[in-house]
Design a protein around this nucleic acid. Structure first.
Length: 437
DNA sequence: TGAAATGTTGGGGCG
DNA sequence: ACGCCCCAACATTTC
């Protein structure tokens, strides 16, 4: 059926090169038609109409559309529910098979199942491919076939299974002969999809040898520009994981470890989907959180009186990013000092982080709260003052985001850390004991 | 990818 | 010279 197209449904893999779905679709002799759905089921949940992530998706798609235009093709874009949009596309174009890259979130798995059913009902094939990870949730397991729930043995197995000759970037060439030759259409504007311009721009990633070779030594100091900004690009697929790992292998071990942490949490979410709403360790579901809304507001606004926490929260609001060391400190403060449910913090980060990814965000919040797999033990409480002394000794980061620190305008500490620490230990102990009864 | 509490050691001041 | 105390510095245990 040479007159039909292979449909490439782009989702969080916003690139034409080194894309598994494209690679597989090119194995047949059909031409490729590229499609993106602005899914209103997802977009309607976003609180901010000027969401920088939507801006980023939109501008990356525009780039893709122009690349396709040069090949005599065009990107097909639909706004609406995934099922309805796919139904329209199948009516408007002759499609033999839909190719997409697998997404491991429960929402996406359900969506993809229903789309598969729509396709099958119209005699259109539908297939998902591994693209987002080096190893999927069933590929790195213990000897008994069960999922790892501890990072270090998972990491060792991952490294022993990894083969740099196998897991290379995918090479192929798109041309006017293997892409659908259709009239080029301009993308709908941001306003067309009911969003507006954001002042926040997504920073480019940095995988320079300078960053990679000094990663372990410098990564914990928020005042240094020593991190990669890779997260957001992996989130939206503007770089492939294969390429990222290839580059990471040129640096110190720690940087690759971070990419392995990412896959660790992706496989945890895939193998234990309940973690999306519940504690991995069920004993912690008995925690008696205080959940004071005024306290939560002080935290989100960066007015806790603890400068390292406030700097991080203000950085997040202003840039959509927060240094990872500071994420841990701010998260620990919310959960342990204020005794606010980790899900509140998780949801807030989900709304504001450009690099928000369900698996990583959930995994790391549960790690800080002590309720996750291989988590920090509950009695490990960060002292925001000690952390500041260690990781921002010259207060360079703090002065940048909390310029009024040291003046009378800066709020007093909202809680006594020593008191809060003891209260947290008691509350956690109580939750863990109630499980035993 | 903690920090506080507690224990141990050893140097120096002092009677 | 000696014992005693203090306490900083470091080590270990505990949460």
């Amino acid at each position: 059926m040479k007159d039909k197209y292979n449909l490439i449904w782009l989702r969080r893999d916003l690139r034409l090169s080194d894309n598994a779905a494209v690679h597989h679709a090119l194995q047949s002799n059909r031409q490729l038609l590229f499609y993106f759905n602005f899914d209103t089921e997802i977009l309607d949940q976003l609180e901010n109409r000027a969401d920088a992530r939507v801006n980023f998706i939109h501008s990356e798609l525009q780039k893709i559309n122009h690349q396709l235009g040069k090949l005599g093709s065009s990107l097909v874009v639909k706004l609406g529910l995934a099922r309805e949009c796919m139904t329209q596309v199948l009516q408007e174009y002759p499609i033999a098979k839909v190719y997409a890259n697998k997404d491991y979130e429960l929402f996406a798995i359900d969506r993809d199942k229903s789309i598969e059913n729509i396709c099958k009902s119209q005699q259109v094939e539908f297939q998902l491919y591994k693209d987002q990870v080096i190893f999927e949730e069933q590929e790195i397991t213990k000897k008994d076939g069960k999922a790892y729930t501890i990072y270090t043995p998972y990491m060792k197995k991952w490294r022993s299974e990894f083969d740099s000759t196998v897991h290379q970037p995918l090479e192929y060439k798109l041309s006017s002969s293997n892409t659908a030759q259709i009239e080029w259409k301009k993308m709908p504007s941001l306003e067309d999809i009911r969003f507006t311009n954001s002042s926040i721009k997504i920073p480019a990633f940095n995988l320079s040898s300078e960053m990679l070779n000094n990663y372990e030594a410098r990564r914990n100091f928020p005042a240094l520009k020593a991190t990669s900004n890779l997260g957001v690009h992996l989130r939206f697929g503007t770089i492939s994981i294969r390429k990222a790992v290839q580059e990471a292998l040129k640096g110190d071990d720690q940087f690759l470890n971070e990419l392995i942490w990412r896959e660790f949490f992706i496989q945890i979410l895939a193998n234990f989907p309940k973690v999306e709403t519940e504690c991995f360790k069920s004993a912690y579901n008995n925690m008696e959180w205080i959940n004071n809304e005024k306290d939560f507001e002080k935290w989100t606004n960066g007015k806790t009186g603890f400068p390292i926490v406030d700097a991080g929260m203000r950085e997040l609001k202003a840039t959509g990013n927060m240094h990872n060391r500071v994420r841990m400190i701010a998260a620990s403060f919310l959960v342990k000092d204020l005794l606010i449910d980790w899900r509140w913090g998780e949801a807030y980060f989900a709304n504001h982080l450009l690099d928000y990814d369900l698996a990583a965000n959930n995994g790391n919040w549960q790690w800080v709260a002590g309720c996750g797999c291989d988590a920090a033990p509950y009695f490990r409480v960060f002292n925001p003052t000690e952390q500041q002394k260690k990781f921002d000794p010259d207060m360079e980061y703090i002065r940048k985001w909390v310029p009024e620190f040291g003046t009378e305008k800066y709020p007093k500490q909202m809680i006594d850390h020593k008191f809060a620490r003891i209260r947290a230990l008691e509350t956690y102990k109580k939750a863990l004991q109630s499980e035993l009864i």
